[in-house]
Write a protein that binds this DNA or RNA. Structure first.
Lengths: 221, 221
DNA sequence: TAGATTGTTAATCGATTAACAATC
DNA sequence: TAGATTGTTAATCGATTAACAATC
């Protein structure tokens, strides 16, 4: 099979990682009644170089107007479409402690491309409870999840349960996991996992040490 | 001032981001009684190219032995040192819901370079409670935090409180924030923030869509 | 010694930035 | 028209991978 036949989207991962930040800033602008913006303004709000903003946005097509800038509403739609947020992705939440409940009731989720499709917990004391209109199911019920391949699994359990839950999600056919538990998890290769609180904390420590170790580093005037 | 005078550590950010993963795998190996490993073994466990492992580790100095591999215990110490985990960084946790309590009691934190130095909450009902030997203080007390510049602030509040808490942490002099709340926060430039659950979810959606849109993509045999 | 595996150099690849013509 | 700002091309920079000499 010739490689040229592949429908190479070719939108770089580095760009994808920044799109949510642009979307966030555009949302704030829209709320404030701002109709139009520029690559410079977006760059300053997100903290990147303006040329990078233009390059990133050019990957979505030509949605700006030379000499004028970008229409806030239009660009919001284009980025949302690119991220796949114009359709609804089902999300299941495992672990209905405070974080899980916060996520289940989070208006931002349901209004922004995600719909909470299931709540699961291992604790008999909470199974059967209703949270934001959904009933908490026993963890064993995850095996019967419909549309598992489309579903994002969110782990909001204590650290000790994270790996077991991850294994159950994978067994149920889920291929995208957001791990909010304070423990790293290991999953087979095709599964996409994001967030690792322990690692992020260690990266913070490194940056802190680097700053501490080089206190005389010049600051731009 | 000549640029060559700077004590350029030069350890790439991309490498730093992978060091916690190596550390995690080494920990699992040590627990299993494995004494020695290789770049190939580490690479497979973490899911990267073996040459990348060697390149990453070479940034820490020459700690492997040609023809033999890496000593698990020794490499663990070297990576920990590089990440700054051989000293203890104080951590304060804001929001003592389930996630906050889980983090406060998390053995992994206190044993791995972090010590919980303070607990804060805005809810009068929980202020004064004791969690893992520490008393929960009112949020206003954050202003008197000693060693704020060394401290990592962890936000584990509901989404609605995240930005206010972030502002209070920054005002108290904290420069490193781990944001576990399900809401993005905006902070001034010198502050280092990690984790943004909303953005991570959107990136998961993008990857999912890309996979869905190109179902015929060849899988390696 | 023969086999194994590192550490490093060179080649490749991809991402960032600079610069500017296109054009509103 | 003059001024502004995009979209894109080319230059730079950094990160990944391949390859292999060093060496245990």
């Amino acid at each position: 099979m010739p490689a040229t036949d592949l429908p190479r989207r070719g939108i770089p991962d580095a760009t994808v990682a920044r799109l949510p930040a642009y979307l966030r800033v555009l949302g704030i602008m829209a709320e404030a009644g701002v109709r139009s913006t520029s690559s410079l303004e977006l760059a300053q709000a997100v903290g990147v170089h303006p040329a990078k903003v233009r390059k990133d946005l050019s990957h979505l097509g030509s949605h700006g107007v030379r000499g004028v800038g970008y229409d806030v509403a239009h660009l919001t739609v284009e980025i949302s479409r690119e991220l796949g947020l114009t359709r609804d992705w089902p999300v299941v939440i495992v672990g209905l402690g405070n974080l899980g409940r916060a996520l289940a009731g989070h208006a931002g989720l349901s209004s922004r491309g995600f719909s909470v499709a299931g709540l699961f917990d291992a604790d008999p004391a909470v199974i059967g409870q209703s949270v934001s209109g959904l009933t908490i199911s026993p963890m064993s019920a995850i095996a019967d999840l419909p549309r598992a391949a489309d579903t994002v699994g969110v782990i909001a359990t204590p650290a000790a349960a994270a790996q077991v839950v991850a294994d159950q999600l994978v067994a149920a056919g889920i291929t995208s996991i957001l791990n909010c538990a304070p423990a790293a998890i290991v999953v087979p290769a095709p599964v996409d996992v994001r967030v690792d609180i322990a690692s992020e904390l260690q990266i913070l420590a490194f940056h802190k040490q680097r700053r501490t170790a080089a206190p005389a580093l010049a600051v731009a005037p």
